[in-house]
Amino acid sequence: MTAVRCIDLCKTYRQGDQDIKALDHVSIQIDAGGFVCLSAPSGGGKTTLLNAIGGLDRPDSGEVYIAGRRIDNLSKGQLAELRLRQIGFVFQAFNLIPVLTARENIEFVMQVQGVPALRRRAESMEILEEVGLKGLEDRRPAEMSGGQQQRVAVARAIVSEPALVLADEPTANLDSKTADDLMALFRELNERHNTTFIMATHDKRVMSYAKRLVRMLDGRIVDDILQHAA
């Protein structure tokens, strides 16, 4: 089953008096349960592609499908609903809402979805244990390390069991040990829940965990290889 399909995506940004082609006729298909790494140097187009897949940014042309549904022509409200129900996000930084505790951050998406309080509580506590943060549920982001914050973000991304998790440079602010732990966690969740993971990174350690590595350069896919993950 296809989780994501992009057809001939183009996106151009204006920077000063220069046009930058962030996506240049990009087409890609990712199967459900995939563990894909988009790799490119800075400005290579990986974040733009990730944002287009997540409905956070609209391509200038081309089509994006999530679970067979075309999303590039949806309204703002429809896109918000799609992100809420089907996609989990892990960003490079500023992943958590500062005034909420770890548990409340994890519950946030479920609460917006309208999940009853008791179920929210049970699921958030379960996922906190799964990501190794049991006992830290009442801490606010400022009281946690970067790695712990990223784990909370991961927990929030997967707690409502979305079909797709998009992670943009998830290890950029982490030390190597924490980054390895996080990637191991991603893989474990991918295998246990069959969740599709797409990560944008230029961290070679992250790439080594991917089952499929897609290399981009100047807005184009230049390499797309299956690999034996670490």
Partner: peptide, 16 residues
């Protein structure tokens, strides 16, 4: 601003 962007990205509607 970034926090508001995060909430919007996570699926909170502008009206909220």
């Amino acid at each position: 601003v970034r926090e508001i962007g995060l909430m919007l990205a996570l699926g909170m509607k502008p009206i909220n």
